[in-house]
């Protein structure tokens, strides 16, 4: 079976997905993704000229409501307690911008 997807592409997708991969896994995922891509390629045979793409299957459009103040369903302290790293009531993360 020809390689549907290159090792470089797998690295690029993993990077975009923010997923770390070991060297061994890179090869495994290259094979797995390749076999699925081979399978879904059968859609290329379908004539879709003049067909509209479906956005919402039941045909609903934008659902709007009044912009009113309400209380949250979840307690804010409970939400904060779930963050692994916190400081002074804030969620703490590593530095985003570097010099």
């Amino acid at each position: 079976m020809s390689k549907k997807i290159s090792a470089e592409q797998v690295e690029r997708i993993a990077d975009l997905s923010r997923i770390g991969l070991s060297e061994e896994e890179k090869q495994k995922f290259q094979e797995d993704l390749g076999s699925v891509l081979n399978y879904i390629d059968k859609l290329q045979k379908v004539d879709v000229s003049g067909v509209d793409a479906i956005a919402n299957i039941t045909g609903l459009h934008n659902q709007v409501r009044e912009d009113e103040n309400g209380s949250s369903h979840a307690d804010s302290q409970m939400l904060m307690d779930m963050a692994p790293n916190k400081k002074d009531g804030y969620v703490k993360v590593r530095q985003v911008l570097t010099k």
Binding site: I40, L43, Q44, V46, V48, V51, D52, A53, I54, A55, I57
Partner: peptide, 13 residues
Amino acid sequence: YYVRAEKVRMLIK
């Protein structure tokens, strides 16, 4: 991929 799949989805519907 995605847009084409949404079109075939319409055909299936």
